[in-house]
Amino acid sequence: MEWIGAITAGIMAALGVWMMLDRHLMRVVLGIAVLGNAINLGVLTAGRFAGSEAAFTFAGQQVLDSANPLPQALVLTAIVIGFALFVFALSVLKRTHELHGDKDTDRVSQVTERPAPDQDEEEPYPPAEDRKP
């Protein structure tokens, strides 16, 4: 059981890294999501998830063949956090795309390297009504 998890995690991690190396920003962000899930799977596998009983017991009772519940709890936390970060990354990506018109990673670096704008030319904070959904 564990070797399936390990190999899947490995393949997914490879896919994720490959996608992150792409020039297209969308793939980079998706690559992070894939890599994140590969790592979640890896954490679960490393923590020995194999077992046929639920990891739940009453007083005086002993469960012999249960999966380790701790990695499950860890991964659950990591999934939730990862999801939030992914959504944030997507929203930044969406806005970047709207502003740049394309999603090229080189373009992003170029824009970051632009000389600092003068103080009075700072891009203004969008008015509140623009940010309402």
């Binding site: 920003l25 806005r95 970047t96 992003v108 704008p117 891009e123 904070y125």
Partner: peptide, 11 residues
Amino acid sequence: GGERRLSGAMT
């Protein structure tokens, strides 16, 4: 927001 800031944020 703004182009430059979001690009930096992305990196």
